[in-house]
Amino acid sequence: MKLISLLDRLAAPSVTAVGPAPRRALLQQLGRAAVAALPLGLGALPAAAGTKDTSFDAVTQLLLLERLQLTLYTQALAVTGLIPAAQAADFQRMLSHQTQHAAFLAQALVSAGAAVPSVPAFDFSGQHNVAANPVLFPNVLTNYDNFLALAQQLEDLGVRMYKAQAFVISDDSQLSKAVLRIHSVEAEHSAHVRGLRRGRGAVVSTWPSEEDAAIVRPAGAQALTTAATGGEENAVQYRAANVKIPFYNFLLSRDNTAIHDPSLAEAFDEPVTSFVAQAALNLFV
């Protein structure tokens, strides 16, 4: 797993920092601060925000996500006839953003004196580049609807990962500001892909909704669905662990009937833990 704390690695002299690397010291310090704050911090945070990840872990995982997304769009755009001509520019634009995001994250690692991981050989079939393995995501690069379904789930996953990791790196002002600004771009991408699917007859909203038709996958691919939209039906928001903001009851009390309204859950996108996110990313490497 890439989620172990890499504080020690950052601190180790074997990491070859070339020249002054101011961010390296910063990351190191922040990582330690984050861990030191855990016993206190965990009790006061929503479950999804509780994590032992360091800034390094966060940036590394987000880089993997961006590389996965940009590889998918690069390969899809290279397949003649997969993406309709009318939408090619849309995916070019998203690819361009993802390429910029990946470059930014890689640069953050370089500035920190950390090594940039090599790009894995992604396999969008879920076979892990082994022909004998079962296909979890069939025809992603030959069937437009299948491609869109995967694209939507990866964009949704991106929204949730950035949402969670923005917290992990919230002490690094420059990084944090940029990550927040990438986060909303992921949401715009997701909204668009969802709109494209709706235009092709899929029952899907612009935002994750319990009214969306489920994307049917083999059991082996469940990790992606869980990471992309699992828990989106959550209609209760927490101020701190076990302390609800009372708006849920506030709304339902309006006429003393417990009304089930999907809007309550739709109005808030949910974060995902890095552990759950990594399980999804691992399906493709």
Binding site: Y162, F268, D269, P271
Partner: peptide
Amino acid sequence: GQIVSVEAR
């Protein structure tokens, strides 16, 4: 963060 991504959508 939970609100802004919905606004972005």
